[in-house]
Simulated assay, not measured.
Amino acid sequence: MKGVLLVNLGSPDSTDPKDVKKYLEEFLMDERVIDMPLWLRTFIVKGIILNTRPKKSAAAYQKIWWEEGSPLIVLSERLQNKVDALTSVPVALAMRYGNPSIHSGLEALKNEGVDEVLLIPLYPQFAMATTETILVLAEEIRQKHFPEMQFTNVPAFYNHPDYIRVLAESIQENLQDKDWEHVLFSYHGVPERHIKKSDITKSHCKIDGQCCQTASPAHQFCYRHQCYETTRQVAEYLELKEGSYTTSFQSRLGIDPWLQPFTDKTINSFPEKGIKKLAVITPAFVSDCLETLEEIGMEARHEFKENGGEEFHLVPCLNDDEAWIKVLSRWIDEWAHNTVTA
């Protein structure tokens, strides 16, 4: 019997600093998030970050926390419930970090008689620290606890026509009554070394402004290329004029080079360039979370206006948008009935 496991990033169980610390430890000790030798990763995470970051992060989570719980978890549950109601196979939900776990998601599917699972990492673009870590952990859990199961993985859908359409139309709908002069596509940041480590050709990715526009097998796993391609295709769909939109990367940790331009610096520079009315899109996420709601919706908005900006419009993620639900449900049913290759 076939079934589906939707997997998102995850969230602390509460805004209590102890729960936030537990979540951050699981997240930051992942060797695909901080890809350093274990001893060094342990020193950085447990010796430094976990002694300072949890209280600050807990305060940030408190700003966005809903009565029902973590926005990311609540929105992911809504997505799961709506997709499950539309599809012909069972659909379970899991988080890479925190709860519900991937193990519990697979256990739920097993209890329904499922032995063939479609894994859907809820990330449009492939990255070591997102898609890859989900697939690796899921396979480890399968081998140890569910050897009878078979997995099929949905590839990155950053350029899938269905995804581009629903994303673009969602942007269009959310901005139709808004006054804006420029659109910023802000993606989650990753270290430059992650891009090079994911290069299956071992030679193509140079992050030099040309490699992402030059055809290569490396693009199948190149987060930077996939982000720029999502921007390009959405801009083309919306008929945005050249110069009226920008791609940037938010969030960074440590002193190693991360993908640029940085979102915060980009946003803060707009007012002095005469851009006073800004729309921001976050296409690396399908569900709103701390990075979209607090980092962009609160902190970036405040900085933009402090620097002379006038209007700041954050476009929500796809979340449980009906068009997105229908697309995801159709992908699942096509796989379930073998009408396409997932």
Rank of each mutant, 00 (worst) to 15 (best):
E229C: 08
K197A: 15
E334L: 11
G10F: 01
N268T: 13
C211E: 07
V117G: 01
V114E: 01
P316F: 02
H219P: 02
A129L: 12
K326Y: 09
R224I: 05
T201K: 03
A129S: 15
Y245C: 06
C317M: 06
K206R: 13
G47K: 04
D30M: 08
G69V: 04
Q226S: 13
D30E: 03
T214W: 08
S198Q: 05
E242P: 08
V7R: 02
E229Q: 13
A336M: 04
V154C: 11
I164H: 05
P261K: 13
S57A: 13
A58G: 14
L278E: 00
E272R: 15
Y23H: 01
E31L: 07
I64D: 04
S244V: 10
N319G: 11
N81V: 14
Y223K: 10
F270L: 15
E112V: 06
T230S: 15
Q150F: 12
D264C: 07
V234G: 04
Q210M: 10
I102G: 00
K196C: 11
S198H: 02
Y237Q: 09
Q226F: 12
E310Q: 11
L122A: 11
P121R: 02
V83H: 01
S70Q: 04
L28P: 02
R330Q: 06
T339N: 12
P90A: 05
L135E: 02
I255D: 03
V117S: 07
T266D: 14
A129T: 15
Y123S: 05
E132A: 07
N319V: 10
E107D: 15
G189T: 08
S329W: 07
A323N: 14
G308T: 08
S70A: 06
K55S: 14
V45N: 01
E112D: 10
V327P: 07
V315T: 12
S287P: 02
P261S: 10
N99T: 04
S76T: 09
K197P: 09
W39S: 12
A336S: 03
I281A: 13
W65Q: 00
D16Q: 00
G47S: 06
H337F: 12
L86W: 09
V7N: 03
Q62N: 13
W65L: 03
L122Y: 12
L50G: 03
